[in-house]
Design a protein around this nucleic acid. Sequence first.
DNA 1: CCAAAAGTGTTCTCCATACACCCATGC
DNA 2: GCATGGGTGTATGGAGAACACTTTTGG
Lengths: 229, 229
Amino acid sequence: MAYSYEYPRPALTVDCVVFGLDDEDLKLLLIQRDLEPFAGQWALPGGFVHVDETLEDAAERELVEETGLSKVFFEQLFTFGTVDRDPRERVVTVAYYALVNIRDHRVQAATDARNAAWFPVLDTPSLAFDHDKIIQVALERLKGKVRYRPIGFELLPKRFTLSQLQHLYETILERPLDKRNFRRRVLAMGFVKETDEIEQDVAHRAARLYRFDEEEYRRLTAKGFLFEL
Amino acid sequence: MAYSYEYPRPALTVDCVVFGLDDEDLKLLLIQRDLEPFAGQWALPGGFVHVDETLEDAAERELVEETGLSKVFFEQLFTFGTVDRDPRERVVTVAYYALVNIRDHRVQAATDARNAAWFPVLDTPSLAFDHDKIIQVALERLKGKVRYRPIGFELLPKRFTLSQLQHLYETILERPLDKRNFRRRVLAMGFVKETDEIEQDVAHRAARLYRFDEEEYRRLTAKGFLFEL
DNA sequence: CCAAAAGTGTTCTCCATACACCCATGC
DNA sequence: GCATGGGTGTATGGAGAACACTTTTGG
């Protein structure tokens, strides 16, 4: 019989790469570990998968427990399974990435985390385990996916200006975009809708606020429309 | 301590979705299980991950053991972790997909497999576990990825005709393509190279054979070139 | 000579790109 | 009134899409 009871089995964890957008940069949510191994070092939030919860549930639970974040956009990233990635024993980890609007969520460390904080993506401390590697993979995925799926909106508040949206894409893609062309293309797609609100409290002309109309996006993709930027 | 020794842990398996191209259709390599649960039913090749092997190694090992296939193109697909996907106990599976040129590989059942055979993708028997679901995900991935990564070549022999290549894309994308435009675009990319050989033993004008120049592809992508079809 | 697939160019349309100035607001 | 970002139109070039006939070979 191929029942696995007789054999030692790898442990299974989940880890979360949480991206957030601060007005200027792309940031990453890290926790400072309170336990060995790597106690005191910064790492991705994550932990062991319980036998009675799905992988998504485990990722969400760990994120809430260690950082206080809940109800954020989540997608599976990749599963990392080299033999020596954890010094204790064999541990396979299913990594997720999440996108959050920083301003709407307050982070707070708890359980196994001594501390939780946002770091600029390009200026993180050296991390525990193979978490640097996981972040590299997450960044590549984000860069790739943002061009053909409208996931960037998850990083913005519900109402946003077109300049914020453009800035977001410039940050993620690491190249400048032409303002007029960008605005024309975004609006031509039809699912970024003008609202009748404008920015508040800015020291210059206030910009119009727009929103991402998910309903409309679904309708359009169902009809064969392909998002691309 | 967050050591997991104290807690029951999910079992971990790998499963392989192996695509092949028969002259006409896209096919899938399945095995007939010899063990419970689902003995006698068709399923994806796969099995438990050993503590001392990476996930890739496990996938390759299981594929050789159960089907005799080795040295094929492999990529991680997705990790499936719903709680009840295995009737015995909690089992999380890391799925891989593989692309094979059917004519160059002979399959042969062994170990836990009573039988191994190719089935048309759109006409498979009902499968064990959640393997139908896994295949759906693999198909979507293949359809998506084939358009921006030159992985389709893995399904063809080393030397192929442009008609074969076009047929492959038509099969995967499920739509007809214009012959002249297709040939122009493929050749314009620069990494599909003409050879001085031609088809043999055909009952009509013999077509020129081409090859995928991986070196050239790497050079071009390094310079910012983006494959797209 | 017939069947079957190989091979080949041109036109048109549309979309991506490049590019610069005036406008509204707060201080 | 000045500094700051908001907002707008046009011209050009290049790529994708549509489209049909001749060539080669084997049977």
